[in-house]
Design a protein around this nucleic acid. Structure first.
Lengths: 327, 327
DNA sequence: CTGAAAGCGCTTACAG
DNA sequence: CTGAAAGCGCTTACAG
């Protein structure tokens, strides 16, 4: 074994070191793991929402990239490596279970929509360390489970977005929502209602249209919305949907922001390049990544459970897609 | 050992299978690797070019995301997992060497600019399987080395871009280049010159400005260019630089494409959302990813070398940032 | 304090 | 054909 015990004479240490250097010795990772050393790999599982509607398939959600980048950086800082996995079919879950059980990874981070899969439940029950980002359902808090949830402050974000529109003088504000079974969808609707209520604007059911978080969903929901209603502003539950919304508005002959104010949620990379640049609610992906990785790593190294629920704050970023109503 | 030998009675097999099922048995990955089984992990090393000029640091090159997505998908199809690593400081190379030598991974893919690092050379010399995408320098073909290079057809892409501009009637065509020490930069300049030569347009040295492949580089190079020259069209060596170019043109009071035609290279995600949507040369990232992964996997599994040099074709995608010169 | 032995959980080559 | 043993390269607990 090659450790740095403090009691070894310097000369010997130096000799050993030089031999190591010379032969390029590196301890065999699998041997160490097998002998009880925790391996330094965590899994990052990105649950992908594919959409073929636009012709080309979207193969990795737009917001995975900055989050992943944050996870990798933070993991590296902690001496960990990240195994990246894109989940896009149900059978992937059994592969994931396998790499937990076969000790390829010491823990994992899930991001994106989760179907409540049996394999995942088994992983949690078995005491593997897991963090969920943007989780759709609450985990039952089992004493043996070691998992944690990190979410953006969806309610507050939606509240801020809607309130911003209200302050601009809008009273007819529509909302294009995400997947109905996802927690963030529910929470964003909640924030939207809260701002309306506070301003004394009656909630109109017809002004809320179901979308899917993706561009095509934003497009179709907007088209559907304008068949019956004529809002002056729309709050989209994701920037991707807002992109589809801008497209729809254009086809409808509506100028953004002159005829229609649009605000999104996420602040993905393309948002600032849009025409007009999109006003939106920024999620701090690198903050979420840091929390996820650091919690996971400390849980792995102390072998202790964790069951906190982090809510990461969110902020409004003002660009050019919303206009003050002048009347 | 739990294998599927053909000679085991069905009944026994079934019994074993059910026990496995019941106890959720999964073979220990490290034990298998230690006992000689190839592990099923490949490394994906993304050499990051950071830029802080724009205020926020760019933490992962825009084109890594689609490439990585392709790598993960293709690897998964082959039963492999991918360990993703973002290289952003020199010391990272020694970590990379370590995970090759300690057998954490069975091979690796490098993408982005490579400094000719000693650790990398050592990895190659030691016979580890490695593929380089968009490699800047030629590998010496050592008999023991097992590495391959996958590049886009840079010469042809630049040729197509420049020729397209020429066909639109432009004769004063500038080129904003990438990092000077990178192969793709050299090749793109070559394609640019080739098209000019073919059309009988004299090459003007002042029309070629050095950039850095990033948005800020495109911006500053464009500003610099217009201090002395007044081209009617610019071919940027990357879409990111074209984004900076559109910005610069705007500040210079030049309308794109009316006053200035712009064409990029890469076809990154934001390009089609730009104002105007960017005409560019598309690199087929998923094709490059497939070639990389499949070559690597077959090299790992046959333990054979490979030293091909793939050139992946490239195509023009016409959008709205170029205009026919009407005079 | 130190050095030799046992053991981690597999695979593979080898006796029976 | 089958079952017991050796060995992969480490770490850790244990004799000396």
């Amino acid at each position: 074994m090659v450790n740095n015990y403090s009691n070894v004479p310097d000369e010997t240490r130096e000799k050993v070191r030089s031999v190591i250097e010379k032969y390029n010795y590196v301890p065999h990772a699998s041997a160490r793991t097998l002998a009880g050393f925790q391996n330094k790999i965590i899994g990052l599982f990105m649950i992908d929402r594919k959409s073929d509607t636009a012709g080309k398939k979207v193969s990795m959600s737009t917001y995975f990239s900055p989050f992943m980048s944050g996870v990798i950086d933070e993991a590296n800082k902690n001496g960990y490596y990240v195994l990246a996995y894109a989940v896009n079919k149900p059978s992937d879950y059994s592969n994931i279970k396998e790499i937990f059980f076969n000790q390829t990874i010491s823990g994992g981070i899930f991001i994106g929509q989760q179907s409540d899969d049996a394999n995942i439940r088994q992983i949690i029950k078995s005491g593997y360390k897991v963090v969920f980002v943007d989780k759709d359902i609450e985990l039952e808090s089992d004493s043996s489970s070691k998992s944690l949830i990190v979410n953006a402050d969806n309610v507050d974000g939606a509240y801020k977005a809607t309130k911003y529109l209200i302050q601009l003088g809008h009273t007819s504000i529509a909302h294009i929502a995400g997947y109905m079974k996802q927690l963030s969808t529910i929470e964003r609707i909640e924030g939207y209602k809260k701002a309306l209520l506070e301003a004394g604007i009656p909630f109109n059911h017809d002004l809320v249209i179901k979308g899917n978080f993706m561009q095509d969903g934003g497009y179709f929901a907007t088209m559907k919305l304008f068949q019956k209603e004529k809002p002056t502003a729309i709050f989209y539950a994701s920037d991707s949907m807002a992109v589809g919304g801008i497209q729809a508005a254009q086809e409808l002959g509506l100028k953004v922001p002159e005829d229609l104010s649009i605000i999104g949620f996420d602040d993905i990379e393309i948002s600032s390049y849009l025409n007009p640049p999109l006003t939106t609610i920024r999620m701090d992906f690198s903050e979420m990544a840091s929390i996820s990785v650091n919690s996971l790593v400390s849980s792995i190294e102390s072998d202790s459970g964790f069951s906190a629920h982090y809510i990461v704050p969110v902020e409004l970023v003002e660009r050019k897609s919303c206009l003050k109503l002048s009347k």
